[in-house]
Design a protein around this nucleic acid. Sequence first.
DNA 1: CTAATTGCAAAAGCTTTGCAGCGCA
DNA 2: TGCGCTGCAAAGCTTTTGCAATTAG
Lengths: 135, 135
Amino acid sequence: MTDDAELKKAGLKVTLPRLRILELLESAESPHLSAEGIYKQLLNAGEEVGLATVYRVLTQFEQAGICIRHNFEEGHGVYELTPTHHHDHMVCVETGDIIEFTCDDIERFQETVAKEKGYEIVDHSMVLYVKPLKK
Amino acid sequence: MTDDAELKKAGLKVTLPRLRILELLESAESPHLSAEGIYKQLLNAGEEVGLATVYRVLTQFEQAGICIRHNFEEGHGVYELTPTHHHDHMVCVETGDIIEFTCDDIERFQETVAKEKGYEIVDHSMVLYVKPLKK
DNA sequence: CTAATTGCAAAAGCTTTGCAGCGCA
DNA sequence: TGCGCTGCAAAGCTTTTGCAATTAG
């Protein structure tokens, strides 16, 4: 689906700020971006956009299911395109690198443990804070 | 260990605000408290304390290992006494209830998956957002 | 045309910090 | 006594909101 169609499907008018932000999220270089980061990249690229618009668009994208927001312990939100396949994250405490991973076994145990307590899972967040293994 | 000794061990002078905050954290009724929540409880109890002091004391407690801070997706930090036995949390999206749970199997898989990526775990946060099972 | 969208500036919410005075050891 | 601690007020950060001007459809 084109970006254009994606926005229309979400009931959003196709505007330049929205297209640019969507493109940034889709670009492979930095799949995890903060609002501030997106704003700065747009400014550097010569786009005229307000920080408030970035926040508004990201919120709309999130509600439309286009992207999701993480709250790692960094003091600000981090956005990524809604993954086709669910995954979780490790954050390297030394480099700040964000590593994606999946673990079906863990998911299965999460379901089990929730059921034991009388609940069903709506969503979950799992972040491993890690450091590189010594060689 | 007495509260008094606990503070001294952390290199902190034994003061009224610190004792009161430590008592609140230890009280079984509300093991998960926000800075604001602690502040209000102290005011209601007739204690004279500043919100800034509550934040400072909680930060000191955290650095001393007395308590830990969680960042659930509520827009503010939540503190609890450092658990003797590690556990994770479920947050009920309907009632706001916080349920503690442990799952050794999950912990084991986390170690494994981190090692596969060339890292070792420093810390982790796992929060399941759940809703009650329909009967 | 007209409701949606935008940029700017102001404000809001949580948390931290500067500072002068107070209090524990 | 002396350094740590406290309360208050002010400032910092991320994020949200009000508003008038602009724009997509």
